[in-house]
Simulated scan of single mutants.
Amino acid sequence: MAQKNHLFRFASHKNNRETLYGETRLDRYYPFSKDNRLTVMVWNIYKQQKLNWLSILKEYGKDRDLILLQEAKASDELVKFSKEHFLVGDQVPAIEITKDAYGVMTLASSYPVYSRPFRTVEPFLRLAKSALITIYPLYDKRLLMVVNIHSVNFSLGVKIYREQIQSISEHVMNHNGPVIFAGDFNTWSRKRLHLLYLFTRRMGLKPVSFDNDCRKSFLNSPLDFVFYRGLILEKSEVLQTDASDHNPLLVNFRVR
């Protein structure tokens, strides 16, 4: 298992992945589309174990500006999908199983100008969960911060959970532009859910609501969320599918 916070990057014009460590700043400046819309897909992809994960990704992710995946690996099929749709992929490995690295992965139609990986080890199983901050330029000259997170799961109390969220919240509160904070938060207890809402309120974030709310839940508590600020919510839906043990969240924002 990798011990350092690092991320892999692959883009449409590269044959091999870059390996980047720690905070990374790039000089590329490719803003998102000028049409004032920002389309997002958030999905725990269940290690790509289901046979139809790729067909769902191709159908609902092909025109997305941002795709935030959890439990993802940079398989040949996923890298090919990214390159065919000119998406830049950033992955923070969390665990390794038979030489495959799984973790959060953010696919975007723009290069990030800043990236910051996070990795938190769960206390009992010693398995890790990862998170990733990426910042992208918008055409209105603002900078969009995107946080893709897979929260720690197995822990007594909320100490480790609080530390993981808090380490990210410090970056969000220091960012002056719009923010999307999304992923699998593993909010399977009332204490975890309360803590998540407490931190997101402090960060000035609003939760995206879903009319047909078929998000994966535990004890009537949803596990997947999208929070945002500095953007206008236009549309949100949950896609029911058997391509994973989680249902994808599809959200459209207007930049201004």
Rank of each mutant, 00 (worst) to 15 (best):
K62F: 11
K62S: 15
K62N: 07
D63R: 09
R64L: 10
D65M: 03
D65R: 06
D65C: 10
L66F: 05
I67R: 06
E71C: 06
A72H: 02
K73V: 10
A74Y: 03
S75K: 01
D76N: 12
E77A: 15
L78P: 06
V79H: 04
V79G: 03
V79K: 14
V79T: 13
K80F: 05
K80D: 14
K80P: 00
F81G: 11
S82L: 13
S82C: 15
K83E: 09
E84W: 02
F86K: 15
G89L: 11
G89Y: 03
V92Q: 05
V92T: 10
V92P: 09
P93E: 04
E96L: 00
E96V: 01
K99T: 07
Y102D: 09
G103E: 09
V104G: 08
T106F: 12
L107G: 06
L107T: 06
S110G: 08
S110V: 04
Y111P: 00
P112L: 04
P117E: 01
P117K: 03
P117D: 02
R119P: 03
V121F: 08
E122K: 05
E122S: 06
R126S: 04
A128M: 03
S130T: 14
A131I: 04
A131G: 15
L132W: 05
T134A: 14
I135Q: 13
P137M: 03
P137T: 09
L138P: 10
L138M: 13
D140K: 01
D140T: 01
R142C: 02
L144S: 11
L144T: 08
M145V: 00
M145C: 05
V146P: 05
V147C: 13
V147D: 05
N148S: 11
N148G: 10
S151Q: 12
N153S: 12
N153Y: 14
L156V: 12
L156F: 15
G157K: 08
G157M: 11
V158A: 09
K159V: 13
K159C: 00
I160C: 04
Y161R: 07
Y161S: 07
R162I: 00
E163Y: 08
Q164N: 10
I168C: 02
E170P: 00
H171E: 12
H171M: 07
V172D: 08
N176P: 00
N176Q: 13
G177D: 11
P178N: 08
P178G: 07
I180E: 01
I180K: 02
A182K: 03
A182G: 10
G183F: 12
F185A: 06
F185L: 14
W188N: 12
S189D: 13
R190T: 11
R190K: 12
K191I: 01
L193C: 08
